[in-house]
Computed example of a mutant assay.
Amino acid sequence: MYSGISGMKGFQTKLDTIGNNIANVNTFGFKKGRTTFQGMMSQTMQDAQGPLGGGPGRTLGGVNAKQVGLGSKVGTIDNLHTQGNRQTTNRPLDLSIEGDGMFAMYESGDGTATGGGLQGNENVTFSRAGNFYLDSDGVLVNGDGKYIIGDQGNGTGLTGRAGALTIPSDAQSFSVQSDGTINYVNPEGETEVAGRVMLANFSNPSGLRKIGNNEFQETANAGWVNGPAGGPLGIDNLSIAGEDGAGQLVSGTLEMSNVDLAEEFTEMITAQRGFQANTRIITTSDEILNELINLKR
Rank of each mutant, 00 (worst) to 15 (best):
G120V: 14
N79V: 11
Q46D: 01
L295K: 04
D236S: 15
G155A: 06
S6T: 15
D16P: 01
G274N: 14
N24F: 05
Q87A: 15
T181R: 05
I293D: 00
M40F: 01
M256G: 12
G207D: 02
M41C: 02
G231E: 11
T114Q: 12
P205W: 10
S251Q: 08
P92L: 01
T219A: 09
G245S: 03
S108P: 05
N237I: 01
N258W: 07
K146H: 14
E122I: 07
G230R: 09
T82N: 12
F126P: 10
T27N: 05
D135E: 04
V176M: 07
R273V: 13
Q83F: 13
S3E: 00
G227A: 06
G115R: 02
S173H: 03
F28A: 04
G160S: 09
G223L: 04
G180Y: 12
S285L: 03
R161W: 02
F30W: 04
E287P: 01
Y106F: 15
N85E: 12
V225N: 12
G29W: 02
L261W: 04
M102Y: 14
E255P: 04
Q177M: 14
D170F: 02
L158S: 11
G155T: 14
I240E: 08
I182N: 03
G101Q: 03
G33T: 15
V139Q: 12
H81N: 06
S127G: 13
N186A: 13
G69E: 10
M256D: 03
G234N: 01
T13K: 13
T266M: 13
Q12E: 13
D47K: 08
D144P: 00
G19M: 03
G61H: 13
G157S: 10
P92S: 11
Q119M: 13
G143E: 08
Q172P: 02
Q12M: 14
I282F: 13
N154E: 13
G145V: 13
F11I: 03
G245K: 08
S6M: 07
V124C: 08
S239L: 04
G10P: 05
L70D: 09
S108A: 12
M1D: 09
G57M: 00
T13H: 08
S285G: 15
V250A: 14
I269E: 01
G231A: 06
T266N: 11
Q152S: 12
Q272C: 12
F174S: 04
T59A: 08
G4D: 00
K14G: 14
R209W: 00
E267D: 15
A65C: 09
R273F: 07
V25S: 11
D170C: 02
V176L: 06
T270Y: 02
R196H: 07
T112G: 06
E107I: 10
G247C: 06
I18P: 11
T166M: 15
L208H: 03
M8P: 06
K210R: 13
E98L: 07
G61T: 10
K9W: 00
Q152I: 15
M102E: 00
S108W: 06
F28V: 14
D137S: 10
D94E: 09
A65N: 08
A200M: 05
G101C: 08
G61E: 05
